[in-house]
Amino acid sequence: MSTERQEAVLLPHQQDKDHLLDLYRKMFLIRRFEERAAEAYTQGKIGGFLHLAIGEEAANVGTIVALRDDDDVFTHYRSHGHALARGMDPGAVMAELFGKTTGVSRGRGGSMHLASLEHHFWGGYAIVGGHIPLAVGMALAHQYRGLDRVVLCIFGDGAVNTGAFHEALNMAGVWKLPVVFAVSNNLYGMGTAIERSSAVTEVYKRAAAYNMPGRRINGNDVLQVEAAVRDAVERARAGEGPSLLELVTYRFRGHSMADAELYRSKEEVEQYKARDPIVAFRRRLEEQGVADAGALSAIEKEVEDTVEAAVRFAEESPEPDPGTIFDYIYVNP
């Protein structure tokens, strides 16, 4: 991997204590939420497939916080972190993982298909790359209606070799649409390293083919991510068109809970864990005097309680009624 990166210039509000602690709270929430989800999965309380973003919390949070409330988000199947960062209720997200009727998709979607119209969160999508044209279509609708909203479209490095990626970025470039493409490059598309699947492994360079700016960001530095995404969002909002941001990150867990991780070494994983984005950000907050250990521990305790309450809520929530299976196929059948 090339280590070539472009440093984003931090923004004035990124020095603000409340903002910094909010970023930390969100990252820690995602970490604890997913650790508890993994436990529930191994206990058989969550079925199906569960894709954790542990290790990618800085990229999760830095992207989402750069948006306005009425901006729109499309994301992929590894999206618990995006949903939580967007302010979706942890109990309702956990209940969706449990398939309960109180879940954000009322148990119809599960882990990979979280969605909430209220949060302008149009979903996790589990066909790799399939949602990228949808994000472009929504950006077209904003442009058509003269709205100053921006669409953020998040996907992984596995998506960048699909036809949908190419078709969608090309169209966004031609029409100068208000959309920001953020690729979480965690170096593996499922179990295949990016070097073995991409002729050009620096994803941001592909932006040149679509006449849009491309930047490679340290995806494990939440402030760098936020600053870069805000730049791209403001550019899009001003009518200057789309951008492609490559957030270089790493997932500490397997592709899904069912992944034995035969494709990478334990040493490699340990190297990245030593550079844990949450630990690093915590240290930074302490060193810069933003908060002391006690204040950070208090945040962590509060998050622990939130997550425990979310699990309890999910466990105690009712299953959907099988009689609802025919609901919402058509408005006018």
Partner: peptide, 13 residues
């Protein structure tokens, strides 16, 4: 694929 995908995304609102 793009033509239909763009239509779907635009129709959401």
């Amino acid at each position: 694929s793009l033509i239909v995908g763009v239509a779907i995304g635009a129709a959401a609102y």
